[in-house]
């Protein structure tokens, strides 16, 4: 474990908690893409199946359980409890255009052709594009609540910190995982446009509205 991966995990945890609290406290999921949240729940489910097969550390297990729990709770709030506040008309990204190619790629490019490894690879590829429905929805509504932008900032920051973690591990441990690194670079690049708006607008106290 290194400081970059730890702060990355905490940033990821912060994002997940911020979103869950925002929806729970405001009793509304307006502006939130339910599709992205379903994709994240799928990412955690397919990546953390090893909860059932191996124990790595208390930290590892605890974080995985929290991630899965919070992501399913968020999906539950959006599609069941607070369904009336779900803005389905703007959450129209065709997720099948993500899942099918990602699923195919996981079969073609992976470290080991075993079920757990294919599912892990699927989750890595899927996570890199899972935010697209949310970014697409913001471009359609033309704006985002400030709390939602903080959620997106920490979510984007977490994988950027993981990129530094992989540089660190390559240099000090001779470790590198091309699949995770390439997917992580793609994932972080998708946030660049948002990061620019976040820094130039939200951090100056303005509302995030598009076109910029």
């Amino acid at each position: 474990m290194n400081i970059f991966r730890l702060t990355g995990d905490l940033s990821h945890l912060a994002a997940i908690i911020i979103l869950l609290l925002k929806i729970w406290k405001s009793r509304s999921c307006a502006g939130i893409s339910g599709k992205s949240q379903v994709l994240f729940a799928l990412v955690f489910t397919t990546r953390y199946l090893d909860l059932l097969t191996s124990f790595i550390s208390l930290y590892n297990t605890t974080m995985k359980v929290i991630y899965i729990g919070c992501s399913y709770a968020t999906v539950y709030l959006i599609y069941m409890k607070l369904k009336a506040t779900y803005d389905g008309n703007h959450d129209t990204f065709r997720v099948e255009f993500l899942i099918v190619p990602v699923g195919g790629l996981a079969f073609l490019v992976n470290h080991d052709f075993s079920p757990l490894e294919i599912l892990w690879t699927f989750s890595i590829y899927l996570e890199s594009v899972a935010i697209l429905p949310q970014l697409f929805m913001i471009s359609k509504t033309g704006e985002a609540e400030t709390i939602t932008t903080h959620y997106l900032f920490f979510l984007g920051l977490y994988r950027a910190l993981y990129l530094i973690n992989w540089i660190w591990r390559f240099y000090f441990e001779g470790f590198f995982d091309m699949i995770a690194i390439v997917a992580g670079v793609v994932q972080t690049i998708l946030y660049c446009d948002f990061f620019y708006l976040y820094v130039t607008k939200v951090l100056k106290g303005k509302k995030l509205s598009l076109p910029a």
Partner: peptide
């Protein structure tokens, strides 16, 4: 350096 899947990463 051989690529290896990170088992310890979230």
């Amino acid at each position: 350096r051989t690529p290896v899947r990170a088992k310890d990463e979230l």
